[in-house]
């Protein structure tokens, strides 16, 4: 961590992060949004937000994302997007370094100790849906990663800040306490982004895993429809949704096949989120 002027530590679910930064700004924003999250003793991952060149810290700030694991093509970002850079850095360390759990690019919510997992391509709406369900009686577990424990078969929460994008931002303004919302960041590589702090119970219960009970592949922008999917296709889609399936080897294979053998699965098309929430409730009642 040498050379990092500022540091922030946070535990999200079972994972401890240390985020070092050349600037105070992004970390101040994180401290506010992540207030009440526990700090880890020994962090699992380190994220670095470094000035692209030393002098750029003073002239035209630009953030380089780094850490224990590096991607050579991680593009520098404007300092105004430092909060997003920190989040991308946390995602990157998780995606490349996670070994204890099978990491699924999936959102998750819980009810009665049982988890609904939603996975799909970027823009499919898994993040927005999980955040909405988290405001409507479900326990929010995470909008980006679900951590599948290969030993127990349980899903562990990863309730980081929800990353609301573009149209989804408007669905939460006026609904949630404004103190839970981060700054609006326009013109980022992902469009307009605004972070939403998860509900308090999601944070308080971040160490509580749940039994996977239903797996959905939501797809936004289509007429409402529910379809069954063959197990082989589910398996392939889940290997694609996992960043560390190959790295885990046999452990990943066993965890993933157990998941598809025990959890019902459907593809869910929807045109608006209110309809989607109703469809989710119906499917949960029928299948979970």
């Amino acid at each position: 961590m040498s050379g990092m002027r500022h540091e922030f530590r946070v535990t999200v679910g079972p994972v401890g992060f240390r985020i070092g930064s050349d600037w105070a700004g992004p970390l101040d924003a994180m401290r506010r949004l992540y207030s009440g999250y526990p700090a880890p003793g020994i962090p699992d991952f380190t994220v670095r937000l470094a000035a692209q060149r030393p002098w750029r810290r003073f002239i035209r700030p630009s953030v380089m994302i780094g850490g224990d694991f590096m991607l050579p093509d991680a593009a520098p970002m404007a300092l105004a997007h430092g909060l997003l850079a920190a989040e991308m850095g946390m995602n990157l360390q998780m995606a490349l370094g996670q070994r204890r759990h099978l990491l699924l690019h999936a959102s998750a919510v819980e009810r009665d100790g049982r988890a609904l997992l939603m996975t799909g391509l970027s823009g499919a709406g898994k993040s927005t849906l999980s955040a909405l369900l988290g405001e409507r009686g479900w326990r929010f577990m995470g909008d980006e990663f679900a951590l599948l424990d290969p030993e127990s078969g349980l899903v562990h929460p990863f309730p980081r800040m929800v990353s609301l994008k573009n149209e989804a931002i408007g669905q939460f303004g006026g609904v949630v306490d404004p103190a839970r919302l981060g700054p609006v960041m326009t013109g980022t590589p992902k469009g307009t982004i605004r972070h939403l702090r998860p509900p308090d119970d999601a944070i308080a219960r971040m160490a509580e895993p749940a039994v996977p009970a239903l797996l959905l592949f939501p797809r936004f922008g289509h007429d409402p429809a529910v379809r069954e999917i063959g197990e082989a296709e589910i398996f392939v889609r889940l290997t694609q949704a996992s960043t560390n399936y190959v790295a885990l080897g046999e452990t990943g294979f066993t965890a993933l096949t157990r998941l598809i053998e025990t959890v019902p699965c459907r593809a869910l098309d929807y045109a608006d989120t209110d309809t989607a929430v109703d469809m989710v409730e119906t499917l949960w009642g029928e299948l979970a």
Binding site: G230, E231, A232, F235, T239, V246, G249, E250, F253, T254, T257, I260, E261
Partner: peptide, 21 residues
């Protein structure tokens, strides 16, 4: 190898020596 026969008739095989599925 680990063999999992799925209900839809497809078989998944994890090949231990190569680590390939």
């Amino acid at each position: 190898r680990i063999v999992k026969r799925l209900p839809d008739g497809v078989t998944l095989i994890f090949h231990r020596p190569s680590g390939l599925t």
